[in-house]
Amino acid sequence: EPLWIRPDAPSRCTWQLGRPASESPHHHTAPAKSPKILPDILKKIGDTPMVRINKIGKKFGLKCELLAKCEFFNAGGSVKDRISLRMIEDAERDGTLKPGDTIIEPTSGNTGIGLALAAAVRGYRCIIVMPEKMSSEKVDVLRALGAEIVRTPTNARFDSPESHVGVAWRLKNEIPNSHILDQYRNASNPLAHYDTTADEILQQCDGKLDMLVASVGTGGTITGIARKLKEKCPGCRIIGVDPEGSILAEPEELNQTEQTTYEVEGIGYDFIPTVLDRTVVDKWFKSNDEEAFTFARMLIAQEGLLCGGSAGSTVAVAVKAAQELQEGQRCVVILPDSVRNYMTKFLSDRWMLQKGFLKEEDLTEKKPWWWHLRVQELGLSAPLTVLPTITCGHTIEILREKGFDQAPVVDEAGVILGMVTLGNMLSSLLAGKVQPSDQVGKVIYKQFKQIRLTDTLGRLSHILEMDHFALVVHEQIQYHSTGKSSQRQMVFGVVTAIDLLNFVAAQERDQK
């Protein structure tokens, strides 16, 4: 057995438009009618409502009807409940999964919650491996369901041993009777949507819809739904939504950006999952974080739909894509998950301010006199920076000697690579993860907040409520011999709460 199987392995699926269902090699399930009293909570997966979006479509000038398939009504709160249950049931049916076995899954959280929910009911041990950027709410729900959680670096490539995929496979090879159901490759993922989600949409719309818009992560949702719609409703256009920084969209030119990270969760990847059939997507749109969270908040405030950030991405694209539809036509959007997962993220004004998705003037509360002053007023001194090749031991000596707790790590040209902190280095040394002679590049981390000289002290204040420091950066445009230009970030300084307090105190003292 291989040590790991690539999540982007070539698909062996034989589905073709027009091929009889009787030739399918898979076990198919028909939607079942729910009894009045459910035998367990797993029976509350599927049969989610279709809700008309009344205000947002009109606000953006849509002539067509805009409908939302509300997947956050599933038992675990997301569309991923469907595939989690289906993968477990299919693994039980073919004898792969037996009582007492362990389920391991690399996930952005929602599939993990679905699997942990099913594992709690069915009696399996469950280990979820997820990147650090995923919300604390997801972690809390997983723990409450009895799952064990392993976190991995957000910026690790999918084929790196440190990625959530790599760590999951390492655990599988170490733990007896453990299984990775593997949402990236498992046919049960798109089949769950082909058999149930798509049929529900067709039934709820009486077979009449002209466009379907869905955000894409593993691709199982859009693949399964689109294949069924292509068979039953061939005139329906399928629109895929991919965040900026991901590479799922086609044509490839759409993916060209210097951005590699994004805040919206559960969609987009740096590889093409095996289950994603991009041939059934008629057109791709890219979405960005700001519009995703703005539209998610709009869905909550104006439509009462308590959905997550990827739902915002989907609707932001839908109001663009559906401009081509006329009166009497219908566009369906998939709202994948609930706001429950993001209470401390985009639902929080403070978080939105820190990330730059909300401006101070958007909030009406009274601010102190210094709130709208610029960061450049602080008069920061030149920063202490270190090269990635310097040793951890030497870096600790320098920081202690100069009285700093942290320093930016830059390359020879001064471009920011990340940050090192005294606390992080000492804990890594004590844990045996690094040696004093190791290069400081081994303990770089990139989960820090950046701020510009033109940003306000109010925004800085919000950042420092949650973080010990902020890195002050400025952009530099560099022209190359080819005539092309590129933008790079340079370090201007490091600012802490002490710097802000000293500035405010000094100004008030001078005024007296």
Rank of each mutant, 00 (worst) to 15 (best):
E412A: 14
L335V: 15
W370S: 05
T364M: 12
K442C: 15
S481G: 12
S338R: 05
I416T: 09
L460D: 02
P273M: 06
H372I: 10
Q326D: 12
K367F: 14
G308W: 00
F346E: 04
L373T: 10
I239L: 05
W351V: 00
Q329I: 01
T391K: 04
R459V: 05
I463G: 14
V241K: 00
Q323A: 11
M298Q: 10
K355G: 09
E244W: 02
A431N: 11
S461D: 04
L429T: 03
M343I: 11
G312Y: 01
W371R: 12
A413N: 13
V473E: 14
V420Y: 15
L380W: 07
L353R: 08
L358T: 05
V473F: 15
I334K: 05
I247C: 05
L429G: 11
G309N: 02
E265K: 04
E508D: 15
L248I: 07
S481P: 04
V315E: 08
P408F: 05
F404Y: 11
T482R: 14
F346G: 02
T294R: 10
I239V: 04
A311I: 06
K402C: 08
V333I: 15
I334H: 03
D270R: 04
A506T: 14
S461K: 05
S381K: 12
I239C: 02
S437T: 04
T261Q: 11
S313I: 07
L276P: 01
S310F: 02
E361W: 14
K366P: 10
D282S: 15
R452V: 10
L384D: 11
A316K: 13
E365W: 13
I398N: 09
T395W: 09
M343T: 06
T279W: 13
F293L: 02
I396H: 11
T421P: 14
D510K: 10
L305F: 07
G304A: 01
S486R: 14
V319I: 14
S485H: 02
K320Y: 15
G493I: 13
L373N: 11
T496L: 07
M466F: 15
Q507Y: 13
Q476N: 13
A292G: 09
G441K: 12
T456E: 10
L429E: 03
I239W: 04
I398H: 08
S427C: 10
T257K: 10
G304Q: 02
K345E: 06
F285R: 04
V339T: 11
D242T: 01
F295Y: 13
V333Y: 05
H468M: 11
R278E: 03
V443E: 11
Q326Y: 12
Q507D: 13
I390S: 10
T257E: 02
I498M: 14
G423F: 13
E263Y: 15
V410K: 06
F271M: 05
S381R: 13
V491K: 08
G245H: 00
P408S: 06
E377P: 09
L471H: 07
A316M: 02
D270L: 02
A413Y: 12
S348E: 14
G403Q: 09
G432K: 13
A322I: 05
L363R: 09
S486F: 14
I477M: 14
L299I: 08
D405F: 13
L276F: 07
Q326L: 02
R340S: 01
V280I: 03
F295P: 09
W369Y: 03
A431C: 02
D510G: 13
G240T: 02
A296G: 13
D510A: 12
H372L: 14
P243K: 05
E244A: 09
M352S: 02
D337G: 04
E291F: 09
M419R: 08
F346K: 04
E508H: 10
I396G: 09
D277V: 01
K320W: 02
L464Q: 13
V375E: 03
W370F: 15
G379W: 11
F503V: 14
R330Y: 07
K320F: 10
L299Y: 02
N341L: 00
N424Q: 12
L471S: 07
Q323V: 11
V494C: 09
L325S: 01
I444T: 09
M419L: 15
S427K: 03
Q489M: 09
V494M: 15
K283I: 06
L426R: 12
L380R: 15
L460Y: 08
W284Y: 00
V319D: 03
S313H: 04
Y445E: 03
G418M: 01
I498A: 12
G403L: 03
E475M: 08
G423W: 13
D499I: 02
K345N: 03
E253D: 15
R374H: 13
A321W: 03
Y342I: 01
E327T: 12
D411H: 08
A292D: 07
R459Y: 10
D362K: 14
G266C: 01
T274Q: 04
K484Y: 15
L363V: 11
V472R: 06
E263H: 14
M490S: 13
L254F: 04
S481C: 15
K355Q: 12
S287V: 09
D499Y: 03
Q256L: 14
V315L: 13
A311W: 03
V443R: 09
P273H: 06
V504N: 15
L248C: 04
H372W: 15
D438N: 14
F357R: 01
E252K: 14
L299F: 03
V440R: 02
L464W: 08
G418K: 05
D282W: 06
G493T: 14
A292W: 01
E250P: 10
G458R: 07
T421Y: 06
E475N: 11
G379A: 13
D289A: 00
N255L: 07
R340N: 05
D362M: 09
F469Q: 14
A497L: 02
E290F: 05
S338W: 02
T389I: 13
A249Q: 04
G418Q: 07
D411A: 14
F404K: 02
E377T: 02
Q259T: 11
Q323N: 08
L426Y: 11
T395C: 04
F293M: 04
L453Y: 06
Y269C: 00
Q439Y: 15
Q507N: 15
A296I: 03
N502K: 15
L430D: 10
E250N: 15
Q435Y: 11
L426N: 09
S481D: 09
P273Q: 06
G418L: 01
G418R: 04
P336S: 14
E508T: 02
S428V: 15
D289I: 00
A316Q: 14
C307Y: 01
T279S: 12
V281F: 09
W284P: 00
A413V: 15
N424H: 13
Q323Y: 11
I238S: 02
C331E: 00
E303F: 05
T261L: 07
A407R: 01
T261S: 12
H394L: 04
C331F: 01
A318Q: 01
W351T: 00
W370R: 05
F448E: 07
D510F: 15
I398L: 15
V317W: 06
D438M: 15
G245D: 05
S313P: 10
R488T: 09
R374S: 09
H480R: 12
I396M: 15
E324C: 03
Q439M: 05
E465W: 01
V280A: 13
R297G: 00
A505Q: 08
V443S: 13
A296D: 04
Y342A: 01
V409G: 07
R278D: 00
A301I: 14
I398S: 15
E508G: 14
Y262K: 05
P251T: 08
E465I: 02
R350G: 15
